Computed example of a mutant assay.
Amino acid sequence: MRLKPSFRFSIYAALAVLLLTGAGWLVADRQKDLSSSEIWQQTAASLLMAHGGAAMVTLLLLGALIPVHVLRGWRNGNNLVSGSAMIALSTLLVVTAFGLYYLGSEAVRPWISWIHIIVGFALPAWLGLHIFLGRRRSR
């Protein structure tokens, strides 16, 4: 069940921006602790802002994906396991992002951060698997 190319590439672009800004922020955040230069602090802040903006766009795209892809796939019984995992991973990213932004607990924050980072890097690989399985089944 392929999506229209413009919608599909919008999702790919938004996820790529999230991956790149998230990975870039991770590097800049580590560098700001190692360097006395203010540039890493500014870079980390800019990347985090871009990451948050891309996350908002991605939330809109994921919401649009529900009626045109998720519900149809669920009704047809297509790719249920990998699709359910995509939903679970996406939900986990949204929940951990909420926790990182709004929870002030210093005891829980490192755990939430690591979960968000691990799932954020795992999602693109799982998306590739989801697409592969869906295309293989459609043949």
Rank of each mutant, 00 (worst) to 15 (best):
Q31A: 13
W40C: 06
L123K: 02
G128W: 06
R136N: 09
G73L: 08
V81I: 12
F121D: 02
A85G: 10
P110W: 01
Y12R: 15
H116R: 02
S10F: 07
I112V: 15
S113W: 15
L80W: 10
G24A: 02
V70W: 11
I117P: 04
P5K: 06
L19P: 08
R30I: 10
G83E: 03
G128I: 02
W126D: 03
S82R: 10
P124K: 02
A97G: 14
G134L: 01
A107P: 06
L26R: 09
S35V: 08
H130S: 01
P124M: 03
R136V: 02
L3C: 00
A88Y: 05
G120C: 02
H116E: 03
V57Q: 05
Y101G: 10
L48N: 13
F7T: 08
Y12K: 13
T21E: 01
I118E: 02
I39A: 15
L19Y: 13
V95I: 11
T96Y: 01
H130W: 03
G83L: 01
G99D: 04
A97N: 05
A64Q: 09
L48V: 10
S36R: 12
Y102R: 08
A16H: 06
V94I: 10
H69P: 11
A125L: 15
G24I: 00
A64F: 09
D33H: 14
A97H: 03
A85C: 12
R136S: 09
I39F: 14
R72E: 15
D33K: 13
M1F: 06
R2G: 07
L80Q: 14
L103Y: 09
S35W: 05
I39M: 14
L65H: 14
S113R: 15
W40H: 11
A44W: 08
F7I: 05
R136W: 07
L89W: 09
L20I: 04
S138W: 11
A107I: 10
R2D: 13
A64G: 15
V70S: 08
W74T: 15
L65F: 12
